[in-house]
Design a binder for these strands. Sequence first.
DNA 1: TGTTAACTGATAACTATTATCATTTATATA
DNA 2: TATATAAATGATAATAGTTATCAGTTAACA
Lengths: 147, 147
Amino acid sequence: MADPKKRFEIIIQELRNNGYKITPQRLAIVKILARSDGHPSVETIHDRIKQDFPTMSLATVYKNVELIKSVGEVLELGFPNGSNRYDGNKPAPHPHVICIKCKKIVDPDLDSLDELEKEVAMETRFKILSHRLDFFGICSNCITEKG
Amino acid sequence: MADPKKRFEIIIQELRNNGYKITPQRLAIVKILARSDGHPSVETIHDRIKQDFPTMSLATVYKNVELIKSVGEVLELGFPNGSNRYDGNKPAPHPHVICIKCKKIVDPDLDSLDELEKEVAMETRFKILSHRLDFFGICSNCITEKG
DNA sequence: TGTTAACTGATAACTATTATCATTTATATA
DNA sequence: TATATAAATGATAATAGTTATCAGTTAACA
């Protein structure tokens, strides 16, 4: 995991570089994205900020996440059921392991992914720009609990 | 690609085995899913069927796709923008290569994916049940066209 | 052929997201 | 430091994809 403070600085700097204003609301959103604890959804970000920033609008969270996505500083993880989740700590594509019971998301370190990408490019003659890799399963905690 | 006729038979049989009725509407939907040409969306399936089955309801398509998913005979591909797409020709999880220009979806053959899954299980101590792997890029056709 | 549980089709409800717009504010400049 | 202005906020309406509801219909069985 990258240092959340450094990620915060980088994201803010990137926003300044692109001429966007730094508002208190924006700072609060970037602070949460810089850590991205548990890969939060927009709803989660909104809930967390509302605790000490009660006027924060959900629309503002959406607009800021979209903005930060547009400068490449947050990774969007879409799921079939709708709710997108975000990772501003590690915005480059990387694999995820998702527990289907407790919904926890873990980042594994995989060596052989680069090799796989080369294999794909070779076989399909695509110019590969990005990828998305999720494994779904049951985490060790949820396995030991019966049910 | 599996033989669409065989896939059709298998899906219908699986529905019978589970005690579901075989209606004309269901047959038409299964027929399209058995081929899954271009990984169609619900909307696409509905449009295709309406040509010679004008009373077909969108709700019926949704309900049938959900039903066939529940017996494991169609793979659902969810995307961040909402619209899910389906593959009833090859319902087990498999990688996709998606052209971001023409939206074409190609199925590559990859050798090293099983190995990757073992690596993940080892490292995270998850019991891995399924996965989702998409590569995004530009296909050779779209590369040669300028723009 | 009749019975019945399942299915269909029309539409309402729902959820996540995006658009709109009046008001407010961060920033650049005088 | 005061001011001008483009951008941001917050409240809410609109939208898109999907799911729920329910009255009427039908496939599959005896």
